[in-house]
């Protein structure tokens, strides 16, 4: 379902997923917000990084990384709550009662979040993300991407505020803000680039500058090469597939069973004949209770003559737990075979 939604969105609006909803972007945005609050704006951060090591610099870096690590740890815990009981994992982790397996996974996802959102950031989108690579095949002339209006903007050049536009210059005042706000550090004025994540920040920055100079907005804007609508076949094809997937997903959620049972044959002996002349087979019964309530199970059989089952009568499985039971199946042999 997610894949078809992505395909549809990519064909219509390009890498809009990357710029607005990708977890990498969401966490990077949060980490950047924290960085801005602690170390200051862009100029202050550049200055701080270039300055020599001091107690102030060390303190700011220490606070920033501590907050980043805390956010990463919370993220790791939330992620693991999809795989172990959500209510319990937070309590267990704080009281140091989680198993080493769970602790290991939480710390692994903590590390992944920290490294991705604080260090790697845009490099993930540029060099590592497979989606960024293969989505280009979904682009067409009608796909909307962040575009610089070359005809209106060129020739670019600086000018004073409230000054009449110098002859021979376009609307671009070459303030470079579109480059400074870009999360991947590209210059959109160089044309469509594979690095561009369609976040629209350069549009915001340019619109702000255009307003200051009393020029029309949308020098940089979402536009397609042909400014036409998408191919209808592709559009409705993606929507149809998406709806089918939504239907399957809803059906799966509605019909999901509350328990799983697996039966494993005892590997010690194929069978054995007991003193009553019965053939005896042992099985291991595993019951997984996926519900939030205690499960009571009863074992029975039908349609078989001369069989009987021996097992615990009350099969009880705690919520979200698995229980093992030994079940023995007896079959009465026919009289003519008993003395063989």
């Amino acid at each position: 379902m997610a894949a078809f939604a992505l395909f549809y969105v990519a064909s219509k609006y390009g890498r809009i997923w990357c710029g607005f909803a990708c977890p990498q972007m969401v966490w990077t945005l949060l980490f950047l917000w924290i960085e801005n609050r602690i170390e200051g704006n862009r100029q202050q951060r550049i200055k701080l990084d270039k300055s020599k090591l001091s107690i102030e610099k060390l303190a700011e870096k220490l606070i920033k990384h501590s907050i980043w690590l805390t956010v990463s740890l919370i993220t790791g815990l939330i992620f693991m709550s999809y795989f172990v009981a959500a209510e319990q994992i937070y309590i267990d982790f704080i009281t140091l009662n989680t198993t080493s397996l769970i602790t290991g996974w939480v710390l692994f996802f903590t590390l992944c979040t920290y490294v991705n959102a604080s260090w790697i950031r845009d490099k993930m989108c540029q060099h590592m993300c497979p989606y960024a690579r293969f989505q280009s095949v979904m682009f067409s002339d009608a796909t909307s991407t962040v575009t610089y209006d070359n005809q209106r903007g060129e020739s670019r050049g600086p000018r004073k505020l409230n000054q009449v536009k110098p002859q021979g210059l376009g609307d671009c005042v070459d303030c470079n803000l579109c480059v400074q706000v870009c999360p991947v550090g590209i210059d959109i004025r160089d044309g469509l680039q594979y690095d561009c994540i369609n976040c629209g920040l350069c549009i915001d920055a340019c619109d702000e500058t255009m307003s200051k100079f009393s020029y029309g907005k949308e020098l940089i804007r979402f536009a397609s090469e042909t400014e036409q609508h998408n191919d209808a076949k592709a559009k409705y094809g993606y929507i149809a597939l998406l709806l089918i997937c939504v239907g399957f997903m809803a059906s799966w959620l509605h019909n999901r069973s509350e328990f799983e049972v697996s039966v494993l044959k005892d590997r010690n002996a194929l069978y054995r004949v007991n003193e009553l002349g019965e053939i005896e087979n042992s099985y291991q019964l595993k019951i997984l209770n996926k519900s939030d309530t205690k499960g009571h199970f009863k074992l029975s059989y039908q349609g078989l003559e001369g069989f009987r089952i021996e097992s615990e009568k009350n099969l009880i499985v705690e919520p979200q737990q698995i229980s093992n039971y030994t079940v023995t199946l007896f079959c009465r042999m026919k009289a003519k075979y008993i003395n063989l």
Binding site: N41, I46, V181, C182, L201, I203, A205, D207
Partner: peptide
């Protein structure tokens, strides 16, 4: 390293 300037606006 890319130093990103914080930007306000519609898309942000």
């Amino acid at each position: 390293k890319i130093y990103i300037k914080e930007q306000k606006g519609f898309y942000q």
